[in-house]
Design a protein around this nucleic acid. Structure first.
Lengths: 116, 116
DNA sequence: ATATAATATCATCAGATGCTGATATGATGA
DNA sequence: TCATCATATCAGCATCTGATGATATTATAT
């Protein structure tokens, strides 16, 4: 695939957005909007498996979307910046205004779509 | 993979964000910030191949990030909403403040990282 | 109709991604 | 020390994704 013909910026930005580009991670970000939670609390709140959550949290952390703090044997995760929420909200707004077409952005080769 | 244990919302939002989660698409969005362009102009401006651009444009359109209008044999693409730019700018800001950790969000299993 | 320019679609394939289950690490308490 | 809870990491896999090159479509002009 190669894909390295871009200024570092686009690669970086793309990775950043990929943090938001998965339903499991969005679910995690959502539950974290209520404040810091431990991994097992996140597991309970989302219904995902422990290793799955752990992997996604690592991703979110690498993307800079969450930060951690240890407390005894617990590790608390929380949103790293209020702008993370802001970005989610802005996306929600935009999406609400668009809504129609996002059914299938998959495969980015857009076959016939737009009906159940 | 299956992955359908989520309220439609997260799936939708994830797809929406995926529109932003690729360097080629970010490059396209960037050149479109200057206003509407035809496909071939976008091809020239980005250096990507025609079919590649065309595929990405289809994706961006499905995600609602761009809209099109035909003029003769040309098709003009442009950003669908000023909030698309706004979202990009907000992401830029956030990313600038974070910057450090986004080197490797790939594989989301976070091996040892953070050094060239 | 033919030729040509602009754009879209298709098949294919390498590589990335996310999930699961098992195992490893780390902290706490007996 | 051992047992246990909390979390992280790993291997394997099925799938998704993006790039390429070839072909199809659409519009214009002759």
């Amino acid at each position: 695939m190669l894909r390295m013909a871009y200024p570092k910026t686009y690669e970086l930005q793309a990775k950043f957005f990929r943090g938001f580009a998965d339903p499991s991670r969005l679910a995690i970000l959502e539950v974290l909007r209520g404040g810091a939670l431990t991994v097992s609390e996140i597991v309970r709140a989302t219904g995902l498996t422990q290793s799955n959550v752990s992997n996604h949290l690592a991703c979110l952390r690498d993307c800079g979307l969450v930060v951690t703090r240890r407390q005894g044997k617990f590790i608390y995760y929380e949103l790293s910046d209020p702008r993370v929420e802001q970005l989610l909200r802005l996306a929600d707004e935009l999406l609400a205004g668009i809504a129609k077409g996002v059914y299938e952005c998959t495969r980015y080769t857009a076959e016939e779509r737009g009906h159940g």
